[in-house]
Every structure is written in structure tokens, then in C-alpha cells.
Design a protein around this nucleic acid. Structure first.
Lengths: 235, 235
DNA sequence: ATTTAAAAGTTGTATATACATCTTTATTGT
DNA sequence: ACAATAAAGATGTATATACAACTTTTAAAT
């Protein structure tokens, strides 16, 4: 039989995963959880404390416990939102939607998304511009079952990453990074006059319900960098 | 005044950082710590438990608490040890030491290592081979104060990473990845016949005592990949 | 010597309690 | 209406206790 505090953790995680408790939503207090689950306060506390140490919850003395900002989750090795980064630099950000529609999944896509070959999947190609100049291209294949409204969004306003985070919070992502030479297609998208080494980041995102998204993000290697941080105990 | 359990955590971390307690070393039991620090068992337990959740300690019911394998630390976004990876594939691994000595720190190196410009720092260039073919070059600048014996190691036997992990465990690393075109020097080292897009990973490693190492690791982008994983709560 | 059984040691879970510290809300006085 | 104060509510730290479950060591029996 599972431990009591694990059941409470599970309960909270489910609320967050389902989207019922969004970012910054208040979580029941130690005493409330203790009463609802018929456990002592210390047991309820343990559940909250452990989730807080995993940065899923944020606790404030005197105030309460809240769902953490999900962006802080992935930040260990998340590409900082390109829009934020550009704006922070004081430059103008814009996005160009090159493609947004459905396509048949070829074998590689089907495997990555865990759907049948030939199945219709959502597909988008978006170019991010800094001061009007393209600096990053982002191609995504999205499992329609996980995000049925994917095609209905305005991606000049909200980034796909942002939207998908709302639809499927608490996801796990696997990344692969490689250096490639820009293909003709990439040269077109990024308006490169010649071939250039590029960073290609492939990201496969899944939640407990299944694979959400398969993304290919390409930077011209010379102009942009991807930074990751391996943190370690503060003390 | 700091909380009692924080003092115990600090005590344990210092033992590990100093190297006094190595990998898999036994850590005093809850009861022993409770007695030594004159606290209740629950307080000592809290210190051990929190360090265990950060993967610094490993606890086994009935047996005891031990210092975790440090390699599991960085594994979230550590480049898997190239030697291991090659051996796992059933291929032959070898390393070629191209350079091993001292050099004057130029400005960029000095800043990265937090030493004075012109100071002598340890320097190594090592090429890793798979079945005799070079697949990765690794250039390192090492702060001599942190690892005085760096030059005395046999890097065909032990990897610099492995050695440095012993000298300075519990480090924090910052990574930057970019795509570059191979320079002539890199072409020489990797025996590339023509320019090729490469992944360049720059890693700056520091412990609490200071900056340990500044490393530049270059892969031919087409043949090798760097994989990272963003994990998320198991439940 | 080998096996078996008991004991001791260690971590895991759970509870009840006490008090500290901070925040938010409600009350009261002007 | 405003400000000051009090009360209530929340998290933070610490302790003492009890028992469960597992491992290692010790002791005993064969």
C-alpha cells in the first residue's frame, strides 16, 4: 500500500496536470489537507514540502502554498523563450507563420509522436525575427489528440511553447542537439545567402497522457547560443 | 540563526566537498547524527532526507546512508563519458594526448578561470578515438590552484573529467553550446579533410573554492550527438 | 563448519504537540 | 473613512514517541 503522503502528492500532481490548478493557484493549506485526507498536519506537510523542493509548488511563510510558475520548471535546460530574450535586449520581436496545417505523418514523425504512419498531425513552421531579421526557425509536429486546438492559435501573439505548456503542463522533454549545415529549405526560411553551420535542437515532449510534440528548432550557429545550466546544491 | 538541520546538511556537504567522504562512503546514521548534534532523530533525519532528494546521498532501508555516486549528479545534462559511450557500442576506445603542459592565460582564459592575465594555467588537448578514428577533441584550461596534479595524470587511462571529479566533487557547471565551422586547427586534430559544421560545447566548472576548469569540447556535428534530458517528477 | 535463529541497527511512515514567525483578515477606536 | 490593533490563519522548526520493514551482525544449535 502506498504511503499516505504519496497519495497526497499524487492528488496534487493530478490537479496540476489536468490543468485544474493553474500557475500561481493556491493549494489547500496543511491543515485543510490534513483534515481532508484524515492525516496529521505533519504528513500533509511532507507532501507539500517535497513538491516544493521539486519546484512544483512554492510556499510562502504566513501566506500559503501555490502552484509554481511552470516556466521555472524547464529552465534548467530550457531554451529561454526566444521572444523574451529578444525583448530583453531591447530589440523588436516578431514571428512569421510560414506554415500551419495538417500533414500526413511520415515514418519518422509517426514514431516520434507515437501515432500511426500516415495519420494526420498538426504541423507548423514559424520563423522568429529580431528587428525584422529571421534568427530562428521552429518546426513542430503536434499530436492532435493532446492539443486539438493547436491550429486555432495566433502564433504571432502566443508562442507554441507557451500554448502547449498550458494544454499539457508538467511534461518531460528529451533533447538532442546537433550541428548541421543549413539545408536549402533552412536557408530560405532564415534568408541565409550561403550555407552556414546551424544548431539543430530536437525536442520530444511527453506528458503522462502521451507524446505531445516533436519539435525541430534551428539557429544559425554563429549568431545564437544555447545555454544550459547544471545547478547544484546551494546549501 | 540558521536552522539546526541546515547545519547538519552543511556539515555533511563539507565532508563530501573536501573529499573526506568519497563516493559510496557511509554517512553517520540518523541516531549518531542526532546524538552528535544534540538534536532529535527527526531533525537529523530531515538533513539526510533532503540531501538524499537532491541525489547527494543514497539511503537504503535497513542498511544506512551513503554518499551517492557523483556521476549520477551531472547526468541530467552531462555529456556521457565519451569512453563509456564508445565501449558500450562495442567499439575500441583510445585517447591521444596532443598537448599537456602550462601556458600563459590570455585575457579570455584568465577571465573564465578567474586568474590574472598571463598567469600560468594547466592546458591539455586530448583527442578521443573510436576504432582509431578521432571523433572528439577536448581542450581544457585548468586552474592550477584547484588541481595541482593535473599535469601528472595519464590521460590515456583516466579522463580529465574523471580526475577533476575526484579532486573537486560537487561542482557546478555552466554550459554553452554553439555550432561552429571547424577551424584549420580543429580539422588537424580531428583529421577532417574539409570544413564541417561542428558542435562546440563550452563548459565552465566551479566548486565553492573557485573556478576549476574551462573546457572546450568539439564534435563533428554530423557524426555525434549530444543528448540531454529534462526530467520531471516521477510521482 | 554450516545453518538457523535471534538480536541489534537502520531507515520509513505516521502522529501529536509546542512554539516561532510571518501574512492576511477582521475588529476596534478615533 | 482611516489607522492602529488584535485575531486568525499559514508556514517553519523542533521534539518525543511508536511501530513497521529491512539489513547486518551476533549468537546458538546442529
Amino acid at each position: 500500500m502506498a504511503a499516505k503522503f504519496e497519495l497526497i502528492k499524487k492528488y496534487i500532481l493530478e490537479k496540476i496536470e489536468s490543468g485544474e490548478w493553474q500557475e500561481n493557484a493556491p493549494v489547500p493549506s496543511e491543515n485543510k489537507l490534513a483534515e481532508e485526507f484524515s492525516v496529521s498536519r505533519m504528513t500533509a506537510r511532507r507532501a507539500l514540502e517535497e513538491l516544493s523542493q521539486k519546484d512544483i509548488l512554492v510556499r510562502t511563510k504566513g501566506s500559503g502554498t501555490y502552484v509554481a510558475s511552470l516556466k521555472s520548471q524547464g529552465s534548467m535546460f530550457e531554451i529561454r523563450d526566444i521572444a523574451d530574450e529578444i525583448k530583453e535586449r531591447g530589440h523588436e520581436y516578431s514571428a512569421t507563420v510560414i506554415e500551419l496545417g495538417e500533414i500526413d505523418a511520415i515514418a519518422a514523425t509517426a514514431i516520434a509522436l507515437d501515432v500511426k504512419i500516415g495519420a494526420q498531425v498538426h504541423h507548423s513552421v514559424i520563423v522568429h525575427n529580431e528587428n525584422g531579421k529571421p534568427v530562428q526557425v521552429e518546426e513542430r509536429f503536434v499530436n492532435p489528440e493532446m492539443a486539438p486546438d493547436y491550429l486555432g492559435q495566433d502564433y504571432t501573439e502566443i508562442s507554441p511553447h507557451e500554448y502547449l505548456s498550458q494544454v499539457a503542463p508538467l511534461t518531460e522533454a528529451r533533447h538532442t542537439i546537433e550541428a548541421i549545415s543549413s539545408t536549402q529549405q533552412v536557408c530560405d526560411w532564415l534568408k541565409l545567402v550561403k550555407e552556414e553551420p546551424c544548431l539543430q535542437l530536437i525536442r520530444r515532449t511527453s506528458s503522462k497522457q502521451g507524446v505531445v510534440c516533436f519539435a525541430r528548432i534551428i539557429y544559425p550557429g554563429s549568431s545564437y547560443r544555447l545555454s544550459g545550466q547544471l545547478t547544484f546544491p546551494d546549501n
